[in-house]
Amino acid sequence: MSGTIGGPPDSFSLSPLLALLPDGGNLYRLETLVSSLYARQESVEALREEVADRESERKHAVEAAMLRQILDWLSEKPGEGE
């Protein structure tokens, strides 16, 4: 149940609600997607300039913010993976 002495803490003990969330994919694989993510960012920014309605603008803004955070993280990473 809990981690061994000297080992990593049991995530459930630290935050049970967080520990319930499904694991997800692969961060290393995300690093290989830099080019396509930049392309998507350009595409979304172009769409933001084209749309006229508020709802579409909101959706594009949300997607752009997501892509920006991912690309910022990828640019912060020190060289090769761990």
């Binding site: 995530s11 935050s15 967080l18 969330l21 499904p22 694991d23 997800g24 994919g25 692969n26 961060l27 694989r29 995300l30 997607l33 396509s36 997501m66 991912i70 993280w73």
Partner: peptide, 16 residues
Amino acid sequence: DDEINDIYKLGKLWLE
């Protein structure tokens, strides 16, 4: 699917 799962993984890391 991979992109969605990987982006989610990063989001979960940031939550943690």
